[in-house]
Computed example of a mutant assay.
Amino acid sequence: MGVVILDGTTVRSFVNDELNFNNSINSRFDSLDLNNDGLLSRSELRKAFESLRLIETHFGADVITKPEQLTKLYDSIFEKFDCDHSGSVDREEFRSEMKKMMLGIADGLGSSPIQMVIDDDDQSFIKEAVDLEESKLHN
């Protein structure tokens, strides 16, 4: 576990580094595609967001959300990712929406640096952005 300092530039640089960003997206997509059909179903994408626990927690504290509210929320997230309304999310749709999310995080962070505690085994895109920036500093 370590403390890192980052700002919007860290995240934006990661997204703009197409090779690293696309490799990261492809890896994450493949890990979510449980049946290896090259598409994410509603349930596969929901499992991904459930694992992040972004909705069920508030500043690290559990909050109770009714199951039907969670289903509505996850369904709306799926609809946002399923740009062509095919009933599944392909790799390009996933990449496009994750890019928008990451750039939204970058915009939200702006140029004000923040400190963040990240586990060494964390698999998040934020950790990958920090690792990429750190590797560029050492080269």
Rank of each mutant, 00 (worst) to 15 (best):
I55R: 06
S111P: 00
L137Y: 04
M1E: 05
D90M: 10
P113I: 02
Q69L: 14
S124C: 08
T9S: 11
E97H: 02
K80F: 04
T9H: 10
H138D: 12
L70H: 09
K100L: 04
G38P: 12
L40W: 04
D30W: 01
S96F: 12
V4F: 09
R28N: 07
G108F: 14
E133C: 06
R53C: 11
D62R: 14
F21R: 11
N23K: 15
E18N: 14
D107I: 07
I64A: 10
I77V: 15
L40G: 08
G104L: 03
S88P: 03
D7N: 15
N35H: 06
S111Q: 14
D84N: 15
H58R: 11
V4T: 00
V130E: 08
T71R: 13
S43M: 07
M98K: 09
T10C: 05
N35E: 03
I114N: 00
L137Q: 13
D90Y: 11
S51F: 04
L109A: 11
V15S: 05
S51R: 04
K80C: 02
S124D: 05
K47P: 00
F59G: 02
I77G: 01
V3I: 14
N20E: 15
F21N: 08
H58C: 12
K66H: 15
F59P: 00
A61C: 03
F94E: 06
K80Y: 09
S13L: 12
F81H: 02
R12H: 10
T71M: 03
L52W: 07
V11W: 02
T9A: 08
A48Q: 07
M98W: 05
D119K: 13
D121C: 01
D131G: 04
C83M: 14
